[in-house]
Amino acid sequence: MSEEWYYASGGAQQGPVTIDDLKARHAAGQIQADALIWKEGMDNWKPWNQVAELASAPEIVTEGAPVSPAPTADPVGDQIYAPPATNPYAGTLGGAGGPTVNPPNYLWQSIACTLLCCLPFGIVGIVYAAKVDGLSATGKAAAALEASNKAKFWCGLSFGTSIVCTILYLILMVAVA
């Protein structure tokens, strides 16, 4: 299980990304050293250089982009990025009118798996995927995230089984021929 990280960029929440993605984006200059970071389990958004897992990463200071002082001293930062209560999908981030970030519903993936991977698992994926948006809309963020993860799981199972079957088939064909 890889952890899902979120970061704030340009007034909007980005993610989820893996920690490797996060470091890569930081190295590419997409995330500044004072950008706010959050992952599940943290009780508040923290600037990059105060997150223990990330502080060890070599800091790349891009020229012409001076590193601003730590945002703990920046009252605006606290207002813009409200701490997520239980998980990052729960509320509206990025201030008034900002985008609400809901968990991905994996609907397209489920439909594609059902049609292309030819397995009943895709159908289970569709059923869970269909629940995600409704749960998000009624504020049941934890349930929405759970449905999202289940849809993801069944999609992956469908895709993986299909790949394994295809490879076994090819081996069998070559062996018979």
Binding site: P104, L107, I111, I126, A130, V132, D133
Partner: peptide, 16 residues
């Protein structure tokens, strides 16, 4: 891609 909203869900069930 976006989530497809209601029409995406209908499409999913139509496939089933």
């Amino acid at each position: 891609p976006g989530t497809g909203g209601r029409w995406g869900i209908r499409l999913g069930f139509a496939v089933i």
